[in-house]
């Protein structure tokens, strides 16, 4: 081995040994929603349905819930009745196991399954306004309810994969989610306070987007920030991350539609 290639090998092993972070998870009682890191004005905007822009999507979702769609000519309401009853608590346990696909699916995917399989309609694209509206409407029925992800033998491997992704350094900046959200929450990244990264408010209205957006859109933002190649929308890696994040936030209350800076 030449000195150069030995040095290269040594350097590579040295780096490889540092590619995952230790991952001290936040103690349950110290967990705080992103809401608590926001300015008083932004919190007030979320709190009042008259000023919360996310409410427009929820109202649109309610209209879509009652509208017939697809070749089957059925509305969500035809099968599910009053969403305030039938969808109460549903979002709090998603992503959930799908027996047919033998993997967890998130709420958007679950809604799209009813669209294609029950309504016989074309699936809605990710971040499509109607999909966001329906998801917001369904998730809104769980507002104030605690997240209840209970892993079992089937979902555990997916949850563990999500945790591994959370702990893995990636991107040109070589940072893991955990290095910011577990280890440095509360500190300032330029002017922004790093939150703990809980998925309690999705889909939510982000002032920077001037729109409602999904959790996957938020995760893509963080990946782009560390100059990593974001996973495509709907990728299994994203659903695993969502599952891990929801489990990490177990017991915390859903806020949909939340507002974030």
């Amino acid at each position: 081995m030449s000195a150069g290639s030995r040095a290269r090998a040594v350097a590579w092993i040295f780096f490889a040994a540092t590619q995952t972070v230790a991952g001290a998870e936040i103690p349950l009682e110290e967990r705080r929603s992103g809401y608590e890191f926001m300015s008083r004005d932004t919190r007030a905007m979320q709190d009042d349905d008259a000023t919360n822009p996310g409410v427009f999507w929820v109202l649109d979702g309610e209209a879509l819930w009652n509208r017939k769609a697809g070749a089957a000519g059925t509305a969500c309401a035809d099968c599910h009745g009053n969403a305030r009853v039938s969808m109460k608590g549903v979002a709090a346990r998603y992503p959930a196991w799908d027996a047919a696909r033998r993997r967890p699916v998130n709420l958007e995917q679950r809604i799209n399954m009813c669209r294609t399989e029950r309504q016989k309609a074309a699936p809605l694209e990710h971040e499509n306004r109607d999909l966001l509206a329906l998801t917001a409407y369904v998730a809104h029925q769980s507002r104030g309810m605690p997240i209840t992800i209970a892993p079992d033998k089937r979902t555990e491997p997916f949850l563990n994969a999500g945790r591994a992704t959370f702990m893995r350094r990636q991107g040109q900046l070589n940072l893991a989610c955990a290095q910011c959200h577990d280890e440095r929450w509360g500190k300032k990244l330029a002017g922004t306070t790093i939150p703990q990264g809980h998925p309690t408010g999705y889909p939510l209205y982000r002032l920077e987007w001037q729109s409602l957006g999904s959790l996957q859109r938020r995760l893509r933002n963080c990946m782009i920030g560390i100059r990593a190649e974001p996973y495509p929308y709907g990728a299994m890696e994203f659903v695993e991350l969502e599952l891990y994040l929801m489990w990490r936030a177990r017991g915390m209350k859903l806020e949909t539609p939340a507002v974030r800076p």
Binding site: A11, W12, F15, A16, A17, T18, Q19, V21, A22, R168, R169, Q170, G171, Q172, L173, N174, L175, Q179, C180, E183, R184, M223, I224, R227, A228, E229, P230
Partner: peptide
């Protein structure tokens, strides 16, 4: 070894770097 500061001159051994 646990630093959060990126290695500014590094190009190898990184994961999923954006194109």
């Amino acid at each position: 070894t646990a630093t959060i500061m990126p290695a500014y001159f590094r190009t190898e051994g990184l994961t999923r770097v954006a194109a």
